[in-house]
C-alpha cells in the first residue's frame, strides 16, 4: 500500500468544476446554497462541510505574464482546492474522540460514525478546510476517497478532471513530478510558477500539493501555516503556572487569614 497524494496543477486547470461536482456526486453531498457571489465564476466560495473540492477563480486586473500559457497573456487562473491532508494535521491532533485518523494511504480521514460534532477540529485546521454540517453537527471534509482508494480506484475528483490538473499518485513520485514540472514552467517563461507544499512549517508538508502562479495568498493559501499543536507547550506551561499560583495563592490567603470572616 503506497502513500498517496494529490498534485493539483493550476497551470493545467480549465475551471470546469468537474472535480467539484464529481466529488459531490460520489459522496452524496448536498448543495451549498444558491447565492450569486459575484466573485468571478466562483459561487461556492471555499471548501467546507458541503463542498470538499472547490475550484477557485482567480480574476485580477490582467497581469501580463500571468496568463494560462504564455509569457504575455493576461491572466484568469483556476485552481482546485481540497483538504491538504497535512503531514502534521491540526484536525487530527485536536480531535478528542479519535474520530480523525490517518489512513494507510496517508490521508486524513474523519470516521463519520465516531465524530461527535464537538467542532474542535474546525478551529484546529490552519487551512480552514473542515467544517461542521448544519444539519447534524458532525464535521465533514474530503475523505481522500478512502472508500475508492480501498478498492484500488482513483479519487473521484482526479478521475473526473479532463486535463489532468488533478494528479493522483505516490507522494514521492508526485513531488519529483512537481519539481520537473516547475523547471519546465520556468523554462517556458513562467517565472512565477511556484510549488505549494509547506514542508518548511510545522505542518511538515501536505498530501495535497499545488502548482500555482505567483503568490499563494492569491489562492487563499497561507504562506506559513502552522499546526496548532505547536502552541501546546506554551499553553500547558501557562496552565501549570496558573495552577501553581492558584494553589499557592489560596494556601497563602487561607493560612494567613482563614478565620477573619467568622
Amino acid at each position: 500500500m503506497s502513500v498517496t497524494a494529490f498534485l493539483t496543477d493550476s497551470t493545467l486547470c480549465i475551471g470546469c468544476k468537474a472535480c467539484e461536482v464529481a466529488c459531490k456526486e460520489w459522496n452524496g453531498i448536498e448543495g451549498d446554497g444558491l447565492d450569486w457571489s459575484g466573485f468571478s465564476y466562483d459561487n461556492t466560495g471555499a471548501v467546507g462541510a458541503s463542498t470538499w473540492r472547490h475550484v477557485k477563480f482567480v480574476e485580477r486586473a490582467p497581469v501580463p505574464g500571468l496568463g494560462g500559457n504564455a509569457g504575455e497573456q493576461a491572466s484568469w487562473t483556476f485552481s482546485s482546492d481540497v483538504c491538504k491532508h497535512c503531514e502534521q494535521a491540526g484536525c487530527l491532533e485536536a480531535c478528542p474522540t479519535g474520530s480523525i485518523v490517518r489512513t494507510e494511504f496517508g490521508g486524513v480521514f474523519i470516521q463519520p460514525d465516531v465524530c461527535n460534532g464537538c467542532g474542535y477540529c474546525v478551529t484546529a485546521c490552519p487551512f480552514g478546510v473542515v467544517a461542521r454540517n448544519e444539519q447534524d453537527g458532525r464535521a465533514f471534509k474530503c475523505t481522500f476517497c478512502y472508500d475508492r482508494q480501498k478498492v484500488g480506484l482513483r479519487p473521484a475528483c482526479a478521475k473526473a478532471c479532463p486535463t489532468e490538473s488533478i494528479q493522483f499518485g505516490e507522494i514521492d513520485e508526485l513531488r519529483e513530478k512537481a519539481r520537473l514540472r516547475l523547471e519546465e514552467l520556468h523554462r517556458r517563461g513562467m517565472d512565477d510558477a511556484a510549488f505549494y507544499d509547506p514542508t518548511h512549517t510545522s505542518v511538515r508538508g501536505t498530501h495535497a500539493m499545488f502548482i500555482i502562479r505567483g503568490d499563494p495568498r492569491t489562492y487563499n493559501l497561507p504562506p506559513s501555516p502552522q499546526v496548532p499543536t505547536i502552541y501546546l507547550k506554551k499553553g500547558w506551561r501557562s496552565s501549570a503556572l496558573a495552577a501553581g499560583l492558584l494553589l499557592g495563592g489560596t494556601l497563602l490567603a487561607l493560612l494567613t487569614d482563614g478565620r477573619s470572616g467568622r
Binding site: L12, I14, G15, C16, G67, G68, N69, A70, Q73, A74, S75, W76, T77, F78, T163
Partner: peptide
C-alpha cells in the same frame, strides 16, 4: 492542453476573454 504542453501555439479569437482564452497563447 496536451498539444499546448507539447509546444503547440493555441490561439483563441473571441469577443470575450473566456476560460479558453485563459489557456491560450494568444487571445
Amino acid at each position: 492542453m496536451e498539444a499546448r504542453e507539447k509546444g503547440a501555439k493555441v490561439i483563441h479569437v473571441d469577443p470575450r476573454y473566456t476560460r479558453t482564452s485563459a489557456m491560450a497563447d494568444i487571445w
